[in-house]
């Protein structure tokens, strides 16, 4: 990515709206302020992805694994959203922006580097966080979004995930990593 080039960061929805989180996982009242403040201090334009989980299952949804979202119906829903997001990425690319995508690592839909699986989840609601098995894969939404990005030939300057749901998450370290990634 060129020094001094204009940058637009597409962020998973919940970085700007913690009210979209599945219950128990909102770490901030509304905006993840250290994250957004950092983006604006760096002069980045910020775009917000839609939240396919809230749009599909609502705000009172149960915890889910990748398996539970890996259905033809949810993937079709994600593909519909992806089309509009990639339209917006093309809009910025035509204006000379470098496009960066930042998802939420660990999420069954928004994970970029890691997501969560458990083939036994389903049926009568019961979930323990210990049974949410982290695996090195993308979540369903990111898989569909990446497929649309590639199909349309949009060039991403970078794509990564931030593991904000990890109890050991370190915001300062994460922001340093993002700065390195975006600035090259």
């Amino acid at each position: 990515m060129g020094e001094g080039s204009k940058k637009v960061i597409f962020l998973s929805h919940c970085f700007i709206n913690q009210n979209a989180k599945v219950l128990e996982f909102a770490r901030y009242p509304g905006v993840v302020a250290p994250f957004l403040d950092f983006m604006k201090r760096r002069g980045y334009v910020v775009e917000q992805l839609p939240c396919p989980e809230t749009l599909h299952m609502g705000i009172k949804r149960w915890w889910n694994t990748k398996e539970l979202y890996d259905t033809p119906g949810f993937r079709k829903h994600c593909r519909r959203l992806a089309k509009h997001v990639v339209d917006l990425m093309e809009h910025y690319q035509r204006k000379g922006y470098d496009v960066v995508l930042i998802g939420l690592d660990g999420s069954p839909s928004c994970g970029v580097n890691i997501t969560g699986r458990n083939p036994n989840w389903g049926g009568r609601p019961y979930a323990s966080i210990e049974d949410y098995h982290i695996v090195e894969e993308m979540g369903v939404w990111m898989e569909e979004l990446k497929a649309e990005i590639e199909r349309r030939g949009v060039k991403l300057a970078n794509m990564t995930g931030v593991p904000m749901d990890d109890p050991k998450f370190n915001m300062d370290e994460s922001l340093r990593n993002i700065e390195k990634l975006v600035e090259g």
Binding site: I16, N17, P29, G30, V31, A33, V46, Q48
Partner: peptide, 15 residues
């Protein structure tokens, strides 16, 4: 942000 609101941002107006 300071009021603790979650934010849903609309896209740019020139789309």
């Amino acid at each position: 942000r300071d009021a603790g609101y979650g934010v849903i941002k609309m896209p740019p107006t020139d789309i």
